[in-house]
Simulated assay, not measured.
Amino acid sequence: MSAPIRVLALTLGLAFGTGFLTTPAQAADAESIRLFDSELGKRATALLDRAVRHVEQNGEKGTADFSRQADFVDRDLYAYAVRLDGRFLASGGSSAALIGDNVLDYTDVAGKAFFREMIELAKAKGSGQVEYRWFNPADSRGEPKVTMFRKVGEVVVAVGFYPPRATPVQARAMLKDAAKAMTADAKSALAQFQRLDGPFVHDDLYVFVIDMADGRFLAHGATPTLVGSNGFEVRDPNGKPIVTEMVKLVAKKGDGELDYSWQNPTTGRVEKKHSYFRAVDGKLVGVGYFQR
């Protein structure tokens, strides 16, 4: 594969491995598995299971309990329900203000009619997930949100959650731990960085390692298929040669930081990222966080 084609594919969010290409659908499926297997994803799934069973046993009238029973609220998570005709039935959260309204044409802060999309998917497949931007009481702004849902008769039962986001402090702390691990035993550390259930992958926080001599990826916690590929060929959607700039910075100072755009593994979207990195025995070790 030529360098221009590889750069274009990476720009579009595709992941390269040795001899094969991961499609956007496959990449999205992999990230969905990772997201829903997280602690937050498991809590949301358990709450949805509980809400669905309640509606199966009590019918549409049972959805009213979502608005008044603690069984259908789990800290920041809550169950809600909407009919296939678009009428909003119940909610244990801020969306309770929509009860009684037809929400088919209701849009998020980006203009997406996500309720309509959810209902159409429920009619066609019986269950699924939608992504949209919703007001987050934690920071008073529209944030990416994921809702999983299932159809029970004429009712769509749903639970949504905000994908977790790491902080600069967490990113710097993980980089410090990763550098120590590389110094102690590089081979073992590189294997640990690739483990989705390991200590170096947490929500949208992960470690990447690049050989400074030839630019090869030696580890990438979010996209393991990048390992072995030439990082010097990688550019973000704005054309920035990410790895090239990182290596130049770290070669001069021994460490550095860089802003660029990259696919967030918890949202599946290309977002602004700020990474910290340092040199460890001829290897660039980095950790970044996605900016809000």
Rank of each mutant, 00 (worst) to 15 (best):
A138I: 08
D74N: 04
F72T: 01
A81H: 06
G126S: 08
A166W: 06
K187H: 12
S275F: 01
L196A: 15
L249F: 08
T23Y: 13
L48W: 03
L10E: 14
V55M: 11
G142V: 01
A184W: 08
E233V: 07
K180M: 10
M118D: 02
G13Y: 04
E233S: 05
A97C: 01
D255G: 08
G142Q: 06
P168S: 12
S95G: 07
A28M: 11
D76S: 13
F88H: 12
L175T: 00
S188L: 10
L190F: 08
A173V: 04
T22F: 05
Q263N: 11
F115L: 02
R68M: 07
F161P: 01
R269G: 11
V159G: 02
A178I: 07
V209A: 15
A181N: 04
V250K: 11
G221K: 06
L40Q: 09
G231R: 09
Q170I: 01
A64V: 00
V109M: 05
V109P: 00
V103Q: 12
A46E: 15
F161T: 05
V285F: 09
R141N: 12
R292D: 09
G286V: 13
M1S: 15
G254N: 01
D203F: 04
K180H: 04
V130R: 03
G111Q: 10
G100H: 02
A181K: 06
A51S: 15
L104A: 01
P163C: 10
L258P: 02
A179F: 05
